[in-house]
Amino acid sequence: MSESKFETISSLVDNYRVAEQSSEQVIDDMLKDEHLSAAWQQYHLIGDVIRDEIPQILQLDLSAQIAEAIADEPSILAPKTLTKANDPQSGLKAKVVQLIKPVGQLAIAASAAGLMIIGVQQNTADTNEIITPSQIVQTKPLAGFANPVSFNYQQNDQSRTQSHQATALEQRIAQQHRFQALLSDHQQQVKLSAAKSAQSKDAKQSLLEKDGEIVNN
């Protein structure tokens, strides 16, 4: 039995085809059996020697060393950043970039905020004279307006009192409601008017008939 197993291992090492069932069986056995796995190593070594593929420094048991190395390796949860720590120049660069980046972002954010403040102020200045609504009627009328106005209230309360702000907001909302109501009613009336065009002829007809009756009488 074991003889045949050694034979199978030999043919496996030489990349020869073996009946699948038996080869699987042998591989399983080999993983359990020290003798068989030793044979596997030895046959490989023999093969290497015959083919003249042995390295100059012969390390007979590489697998044991690898297993040791793996055992020594600390378990790494997060991959280390591969910074070129040895290269002083690149390290400097990275630091500089790190310093500049947040500053730049801050500057952009600040300028955007500045624009918004200017924009909002401009807007409220306009509403003093003529209330020009946004060009688009929102399907959800309130969504677009609550935010900018409340933001505005914090920024320039010197120029405007709180109550002014509140009334401006109310006006805006009321205005949106008005437009929305008008728009939907217009659409509704157009729908209903289609019915009328068919009926008006009848109505006119009946009116004419009535006139005729009166004349006849």
């Binding site: 004279e129 003529i130 209330i131 946004s134 688009i136 437009f179 728009l183």
Partner: peptide
């Protein structure tokens, strides 16, 4: 469509908005 109705406000300047091509 033309709508006429009494309002609580005394005066209000022209306001308008547009929904696509539809002007209110």
């Amino acid at each position: 469509s033309v709508y006429v109705n009494p309002s609580q406000d005394k005066q209000r300047a022209v306001e308008y908005a547009s929904d696509g091509a539809t002007l209110v």
